[in-house]
Deep mutational scan, measured.
Amino acid sequence: KRVEVKPYVLDDQMCDECQGARCGGKFAPFFCANVTCLQYYCEFCWANIHSRAGREFHKPLVK
């Protein structure tokens, strides 16, 4: 058996893009583990950032 640990998915993290400004101060539910991102995102910022060319295939890690 093999266990994969993702220590970078933490609870209670603010969106790295808007710092809570676009999501009413809620914590960010998404983390993008792609090396070009490596950031936490609220729903609004995830949709906005990941609609751009080259990022549309990134998969979010959801808390």
Rank of each mutant, 00 (worst) to 15 (best):
V3Y: 04
H58V: 01
N34W: 06
G24R: 08
K1M: 06
S51F: 05
A33W: 05
L38I: 08
C32L: 00
F44I: 11
A21N: 11
G24M: 05
R22G: 04
K26D: 07
K1E: 13
F30A: 05
L10I: 10
K59R: 13
P7Q: 09
P29D: 09
V9H: 13
Q39H: 14
K59N: 05
R55L: 13
F57M: 15
P60Q: 13
Y41H: 01
E43D: 10
D11T: 05
C45K: 00
C15W: 01
H50R: 01
M14Y: 14
C18N: 01
C15G: 02
D16S: 15
H50T: 01
R22F: 04
V3K: 15
F44P: 14
F57L: 14
C42Q: 00
E17W: 05
K59H: 06
R52N: 12
K26H: 08
C32Q: 01
C32N: 01
A21Q: 07
P29I: 05
K1I: 06
K63R: 08
V9W: 08
C45F: 00
P7I: 00
A21D: 07
H58Q: 01
C15V: 02
G25P: 04
F31C: 02
A53N: 15
G20T: 02
C15I: 02
I49Q: 08
F57D: 13
C18Q: 01
K63H: 11
M14E: 10
P7Y: 03
E56I: 08
A28D: 03
Q13S: 07
G24A: 10
V3W: 01
D16R: 12
C15F: 02
G54A: 03
F31E: 05
C18L: 00
S51R: 15
E56W: 02
A47F: 05
G54E: 10
N48E: 14
G20S: 04
V35F: 08
C18T: 02
I49D: 06
S51I: 04
R2F: 04
F31G: 01
A53F: 10
G54L: 07
Q39C: 10
C37M: 01
N48W: 10
A33N: 12
K26A: 11
A53M: 10
L38F: 09
C45V: 00
F27G: 10
C23I: 04
K26G: 09
G54Q: 05
C42R: 00
F30P: 02
V35S: 12
C32Y: 00
A47W: 08
L61P: 07
E4N: 07
Q13W: 04
V35L: 10
G24F: 06
G20H: 03
E4V: 06
G25Y: 07
N34R: 06
V9I: 11
L10A: 15
C45M: 00
V9T: 11
E17A: 07
T36Q: 10
A53C: 09
T36F: 04
K6C: 09
G54N: 15
N48C: 11
C45L: 00
L61S: 15
C32R: 01
Y41Q: 03
E43H: 09
G24H: 05
P60E: 03
Y40W: 10
R22A: 08
K63C: 00
R52W: 06
V62R: 15
K26R: 11
A47S: 10
C37D: 01
H58S: 02
V9F: 14
D11H: 08
V35I: 09
W46P: 02
C42Y: 00
E43Y: 07
F30V: 06
Y40H: 09
P7N: 12
E43T: 07
G25H: 06
L10M: 13
P29A: 12
N34G: 08
D11Q: 11
C42W: 00
W46H: 04
N48Y: 08
P7L: 02
F44E: 13
T36A: 12
C42H: 01
S51L: 11
W46F: 13
K63T: 09
V3F: 06
K26E: 09
C18H: 00
M14S: 14
A47Q: 12
L10H: 06
C18G: 01
V3G: 09
C23N: 08
Y40L: 03
V5M: 12
L10D: 12
N48S: 13
G20P: 01
E56L: 05
S51C: 13
F31R: 04
G20D: 09
D11P: 07
Q19V: 09
P60T: 02
H50W: 01
G24W: 05
C42E: 00
Q39S: 12
D12L: 05
P29T: 09
G20F: 00
C18W: 00
C37A: 01
F30W: 13
E56A: 04
A33Y: 12
H58K: 03
V35W: 05
R55Q: 10
R52M: 14
L61Y: 06
D11A: 08
Q19G: 11
C23F: 03
L38S: 12
M14D: 13
C37L: 00
F27Y: 06
C37N: 01
L38D: 10
S51P: 08
H50K: 01
A53Y: 09
Q19C: 06
H58N: 02
A47T: 11
F30G: 02
A47K: 14
K6H: 06
M14H: 04
G24Q: 14
C15K: 02
A33C: 07
C32W: 00
F44T: 12
C32S: 01
G25D: 09
N34F: 04
R55W: 13
D11M: 05
C23M: 06
G20R: 02
G25S: 07
N34C: 04
D11V: 10
K63W: 03
P7S: 10
Q19M: 09
P29H: 06
C23W: 03
S51M: 13
W46R: 02
Y40A: 07
D12M: 06
K63G: 14
C18F: 00
N34H: 03
Y40E: 01
V35H: 11
D11R: 10
Q39A: 14
S51N: 14
Q19A: 12
K6N: 12
M14P: 12
R55V: 09
H58C: 06
R2K: 14
V5W: 05
C23L: 05
K6E: 10
Q39N: 08
C15L: 02
C32E: 01
C32V: 01
G24K: 10
C45A: 01
G25F: 08
M14G: 06
D12T: 07
D12Y: 05
Y40R: 08
C15Q: 02
V3Q: 15
R2P: 12
C45Q: 00
H50L: 00
R22N: 11
R22V: 04
H50M: 00
E17K: 08
A33R: 08
N48D: 12
K1S: 03
V5F: 09
G24Y: 09
Q39I: 02
V62D: 07
